[in-house]
């Protein structure tokens, strides 16, 4: 039972959240017309063994998207911030 320290709601069980995706992947600008940047954004992943920055959605809570640092080998949890507040 991973527990996530939501900046809005405090420490809550993983069951309140849904996992989103790799938070290092940058969505291209709306005007981007080439296919490859979109393919990279939508499909290709770094998929690291170890620390991973990732989006989680507090779907059963404040409905905020969060950027969480989590270790994919040990499931250790690092920092957790509102996605809105994270510099792109």
């Amino acid at each position: 039972m991973i527990r996530i320290n939501c900046p809005v709601c405090g420490l809550r069980n993983e069951t309140e959240f849904t996992y989103g995706a790799d938070a290092n992947v940058q969505r291209p600008e709306m005007g981007e017309e080439d296919t490859q940047p979109w393919v990279d954004y939508v499909f290709n992943r770094e998929n690291p063994r170890g620390w991973h920055r990732e989006y989680w959605h507090h779907a059963q809570g404040c409905r905020q998207w969060l950027v969480l640092e989590r270790n994919t080998l040990t499931h250790e949890i690092g920092s957790c911030q509102l996605a809105r507040g994270v510099e792109a």
Binding site: M1, I2, N13, E14, Y19, H75
Partner: peptide
Amino acid sequence: DMYNSYAQRGGLP
């Protein structure tokens, strides 16, 4: 388990 993992062990949910 719905989140990326290499841990080879499952969570309670």
